[in-house]
Amino acid sequence: MGLMEQMAPNLTGVLRRDAWWMGWNTLLAWIPVLLAWTLFRGRAVSRSPFWWAGLVLFALFLPNAPYVVTDLVHLRSDILLSTQDGPVVTAVLPVYALLIGSGFLAYYLALGAALRHLGRIGLGAWQGRAAVAAHALCAIGIFLGRWARLNSWEPVVAPQAALERVFVHLTWQWAPALILGTFAVTWVGHFMTRAVAEAFRDAALKSARRLHGVLGAAD
C-alpha cells in the first residue's frame, strides 16, 4: 500500500482497521446472490431434497445482505480515530457507504431473482407479499444476528442451542420495537437500491439504443 499511503493515508488507516470484518461481512452478504442464481434458474420447480436444502440456506443467509447496515455501530469508533474532519469525509464515510451499498445491492439482486422466479412459475400475484415476507424475515434475522450474535449456519450445525437463543431474544421486551425498526430500514434500503439500480439500467439501455442508432445511421 506504499503509493496509496502517500495519496490517501487516512483511507489506508481505515482499511487496515476494518478490512477483515468488512470483507467477511461483504462475502456473507453476497452468498445469497450465488444461491439465488443457482436455485431460481429456469421455469421448472425442482422438488429434489437438494433444491429444498438450498432454499433453506437461501432463507438463512438472505438477512446477511441487509445486515451490513448494522455495521454502522463501528462508525463512531472510526470517527474518533480520525483526528480531523477531512478523514471522516474523505475516508471513513465513503468506505462505510460502499459497504452498505454493496450489501443492499446484493439484497436487491438476490430477492429480485426469487421474485422473478415466482413470476415465471405463475405466482406473479404473490411477488408483493413475498417481498414483504422477505423484509420481515431479514428484520428478524438481522435482529438475531446483531443482538443475539447468531450466525446463519448455527440453526443447521447447532439447532438446539440456536433455538434457545432465538426464544430468549425474541421474548425480550424490546424485541418487537427493534425488529419493526429493522424492517423499516430494510424496506427503505431495498426501495432506494431498486430505484437507483433500475434508473441506472434504464439509462444504460437508452444509451445503448442511442449508440446503436448512431452506428446504424453511419452504416
Rank of each mutant, 00 (worst) to 15 (best):
M1H: 14
L3C: 05
E5S: 05
M7H: 15
N10H: 15
V14P: 03
V14Q: 08
R17I: 09
D18C: 15
A19G: 12
L27R: 09
L28V: 05
A29R: 01
W30E: 11
V33W: 09
L35T: 08
T38Q: 13
L39D: 02
R41L: 06
R41S: 12
G42W: 00
A44W: 07
S46D: 10
F50E: 07
W52S: 10
L55E: 06
F58N: 02
P63N: 04
P63W: 02
P66G: 04
Y67A: 03
V69F: 13
V69I: 15
D71S: 02
D71N: 05
D78V: 03
D78E: 12
L81N: 06
P87F: 12
A91W: 01
L93E: 07
L93I: 14
L93M: 09
P94F: 07
V95C: 12
A97Y: 10
I100R: 10
S102N: 15
F104C: 10
L105T: 13
L109M: 13
L109D: 05
L109N: 08
L109V: 14
A110Q: 01
A110E: 00
L111T: 04
G119R: 07
G119A: 05
W126V: 09
W126E: 11
W126R: 13
G128A: 13
A131F: 09
V132C: 03
A133P: 02
A136V: 12
C138M: 06
I142P: 06
F143I: 02
F143L: 03
F143C: 01
W147Q: 11
R149W: 02
S152D: 00
W153T: 12
P155Q: 07
P155L: 09
A158E: 03
A158Q: 08
P159L: 08
A161C: 05
E164Q: 03
E164I: 01
E164F: 00
R165I: 04
V168Y: 00
L170W: 01
Q173I: 15
W174C: 02
L178P: 01
G181Y: 07
T182G: 06
F183L: 13
V185F: 14
W187G: 12
F191W: 10
T193I: 11
T193D: 05
R194G: 06
R194N: 05
V196G: 08
V196T: 11
A197I: 12
R201D: 13
D202V: 14
D202S: 15
A203K: 11
A203C: 02
A203L: 03
L205I: 00
L205C: 00
K206D: 14
K206A: 14
S207Y: 10
A208R: 14
H212I: 03
V214P: 01
V214Y: 05
L215A: 07
G216W: 15
D219P: 09
